[in-house]
Every structure is written in C-alpha cells, then in structure tokens.
C-alpha cells in the first residue's frame, strides 16, 4: 500500500514538472556521456597497449642506397657489417637484454608495408629498394631501450635505431589528453546536473507543499514524505544515464566497429560489448548524483 502510494506520488510529481524533468534527463545524459567517453578512451588505450606492447620492437635500420644519415656516409650496408651486427646481437653482452631478434630484408619490409597499407594508393608508388632492411629486436624489458640504442647507433652500417614503443607512447599521451578534456567537460556538466536536480526538487517540493504539510500533520514518516522527491530526481538521472550508455554503445558499434575498423584494419578497437561494462557505473553515478543532491536540497526545504 505504502509502496503504491509512493509510486503514485512520484508519478504525479514527474507529470507536474515535465519540462524540468526533461532538462535533468538531458543534462545528466550529456555529462555522463562525457564521463563514459573518457572511460572509453582509457579502455581503448589499454586495448591498444595490450595489443601493441607484445608486438613493438626496437628496429635497427640499416643503411640503404638512399640513406642520408652521417653514419651511412660509407654507402649501403655491406654483408660484413651485417654479419658483425648479427654477431653483436648474439653476444651475451647484448643478448641478456633481448628475447629474440630477426632480420627483415627489403623484400620482407615491402611485403609488410603492402599488407599494412593495403587500402592506400601509396602501395603502388613504393618499391622494395626504397625501404631499408632492418634488425627487429624484441626486448626482455622495453625500458632498457637506451642500452640497445647506444650500442647500435655507433655501429657501421646502421642508419638509425627506433623504439616503436615511443611512437605509441606519443599516441597514448594524445589519447590521455583527450580523455582528460572529456573528464573536465564532464565535471562542469556534473556540477550543472547537480544544481539542476536541486532546483527541480525544490520546485517540486514547493508545488506540493500542501500535501507535504498535511503528511507532516497526520504523522507520515520522513521516508514517506521525502522518498517520492528523491526518487523523482533519481529516476530522471537514471534515464539520462541509460541514454548515455546507449549512446556510447552506438558509438562503439557503428563508429568504431563499422567505420573506424574499416579505415584502420590493423588497429584493435574496443568492441560494442565492452562499452556495456561502463553502463552500470554510469547508472550508479547518475543515481548517486541525483540522490545526494536531492537529499541535501530536501534537508533545507522540506523539514519534517
């Protein structure tokens, strides 16, 4: 009985305040979408880290015909130089830092290139002799890159030593920056949402002061008087959070899953299913926001 009564009170409260309720829904929707976007970016970074960190290598590029670096003044790498590099890699001094290494000839490099850029017209304008041969080294500890770099840069026939991880780190720092921006926008929007929920609850309490006055007099408990107001805010916020979750899912499904995956076939994007992990967190966050802000408001405007 009491539950049915509280539900009917909530219904009438929502109906009386439709425009405010809609604005609460929209503000929580937008703010939680930004929160979720930040979450998605972090998930994407983790995904890419997991995917790439196993694969990233330190590449020791060898001098080729077109090399302009000072270390390549002696022309393209000779087989002797290549042998000595091979020996150096196998030596215990260097070997203790690396898992394994492989030689990538110009033809292999060309094949990889063709695979990687199969969608792009650039493939047609590249020939094997434009690409340098290289040693690909898998590090035991990627942090020890500096040692390899120092050892090999000075060797004859080496054009340059590149740590692919550093390229990734740069990408990740851009993505981290983007998620930070999303979180800041979300922060501002959440403040908006809290204030708006507080105002809505206040209006709602004011428009029903007759009812609440009578409820007080006949001895309704604090719960029965306040719960409808709190739940009104919570319901609006939860609807907003549900919309935000649906939006994130749609972004992952259609933008990342269909469009981006086609554009960048060798990048691992998060799946639509993974974004659903965010949904309960967003719903909980929305409910807490509304609950706390309406509790604080009611303490001031609806004394029992």
């Amino acid at each position: 009985m009491r539950l049915a009564f509280i539900l009917s009170e909530i219904g009438s409260g929502l109906r009386r305040n439709v425009s405010m309720v809609v604005s609460v829904i929209l503000v929580t929707f937008v703010s939680l979408t930004f929160v979720g976007a930040a979450g998605m970016l972090q998930m994407q970074i983790n995904q890419m880290k997991g995917y790439w960190y196993d694969k990233v290598q330190v590449a020791v590029f060898l001098c080729s015909d077109g090399s302009t670096a000072a270390s390549c003044a002696g022309g393209p790498v000779t087989p002797e130089q290549q042998d000595s590099l091979n020996t150096l890699l196998e030596s215990p001094a260097v070997g203790q830092y690396i898992n394994d290494f492989a030689f990538e000839s110009r033809e292999e490099a060309y094949d990889h290139f063709k695979n990687q850029f199969s969608n792009s017209p650039i493939v047609d304008s590249v020939t094997p002799d434009q690409l340098p041969a290289s040693f690909r080294i898998n590090m035991k500890d990627p942090e020890k890159y500096q040692i390899i770099s120092e050892t090999f840069s000075s060797q004859a026939g080496v054009e340059t030593v590149i740590d692919q991880r550093q390229l990734l780190e740069r990408l990740f720092s851009v993505m981290n920056g983007a998620s930070l921006v999303a979180v800041s926008i979300a922060g501002v929007m959440i403040v908006c949402a809290i204030l708006l929920i507080a105002t809505t609850i206040r209006l709602s309490a004011f428009s029903r002061r007759r009812e609440t006055g009578i409820m007080r007099l006949v001895g309704a408990s604090k719960t029965v008087i306040q719960l409808p107001f709190i739940l009104e805010g919570v319901i609006a916020a939860v609807i907003g959070a549900a919309l935000a979750s649906a939006t994130l899912w749609a972004v992952a499904r259609f933008f990342l899953g269909d469009f981006m995956a086609q554009q960048y076939p060798d990048t691992a994007f998060i799946s639509a299913g993974q974004t659903l992990i965010l949904a309960p967190a967003l719903l909980l966050l929305g409910a807490c926001l509304a609950g706390i802000s309406s509790l604080l408001t009611l303490r001031r405007y609806l004394r029992v």
Binding site: M1, R2, I214, V218, V224, I225
Partner: peptide, 28 residues
C-alpha cells in the same frame, strides 16, 4: 494528534474520500 485549521487545508485535486484516505495512506 489530529489537527483542524480555520482554512480547512484540503487537497483541491482529490475528492472527499481521497482527502480523508490520504491521511491513512501516508501512514501505510
């Protein structure tokens, strides 16, 4: 404690029955 006022304080959207029933509903 029951209370009665000079200005009645009825709920205008509720009929007589619902006004009286309201006092019972809110205490469950």
């Amino acid at each position: 404690i029951g209370v009665v006022f000079q200005d009645f304080r009825l709920l205008p959207q509720k009929n007589v029955f619902a006004n009286v029933a309201f006092a019972m509903q809110v205490i469950g």
